[in-house]
Design a protein around this nucleic acid. Structure first.
Lengths: 102, 102
DNA sequence: TCACTTTACTTTGTATCGCAAAGTTAGTGC
DNA sequence: GCACTAACTTTGCGATACAAAGTAAAGTGA
């Protein structure tokens, strides 16, 4: 069996999994783009981003071009955590596709 | 992007994911074996199993050989739900391994 | 027979968390 | 100054995971 406890709880949550997947696919995201892509409310999104930020998984860059703009990106540690998470997912997927004979 | 909303909330939860993975790998499980394998408390385990049962994902069979024994198994619908769930996981894993250039 | 154990379940209480809605702050353009 | 927007913060609700303790029913051992 896998160590399901190793499934990073911070990532293993639909909303944050969506965010992490987005962040992993592109180097940088503006708040508004994340918002429209995920369809989350401001408060909800910002809370999840802060959670990921506190964990060190996401970096926050504030800029002031025309309007205030905040950009979010994966940190190294975030990418590592995400990759580890994906590895466990992969194991689950693979093993369940080829069930062991008992 | 994937439809993360399609990630079956009943399955996408560490404890129940563990249970579903076990149930998918073997045709039948006794309560005690699930308990020792997952390390969960009675109350917690039975609650998760009942949740899955209510969703129609798990069947419960009560027997009386020596001690009372309850056996749990995946239903057809449970297996389907699990496979659908795995499919989304797989998409996430695959896409994140080969990130699209933006 | 009676105490004890085991299985499987219920109840209770706590702590956490997702989420929406509404309010807040600060900058921009007119 | 006023409307508008970005990006928060606050508040409150509802759901839920989980542990711990209690319960019921059946078997076992003395």
């Amino acid at each position: 069996m896998f160590d399901f406890d190793k499934l990073d709880k911070l990532i293993h949550e639909k909303s944050r999994l969506a965010i992490m997947t987005l962040l992993a696919a592109r180097s940088e995201w503006r708040f508004q783009d994340l918002k429209s892509e995920t369809g989350m409310s401001d408060g909800n999104l910002v809370t999840h981003l802060r959670t990921l930020f506190k964990a060190g998984y996401v970096s926050i860059t504030k800029e002031m071009e025309k309007r205030p703009q905040t950009k979010y990106a994966l940190t190294e540690s975030g990418r590592t955590a995400f990759e580890n998470y994906l590895e466990i997912l992969e194991q689950i997927v693979n093993s369940s596709k080829k069930p062991e004979t008992d």
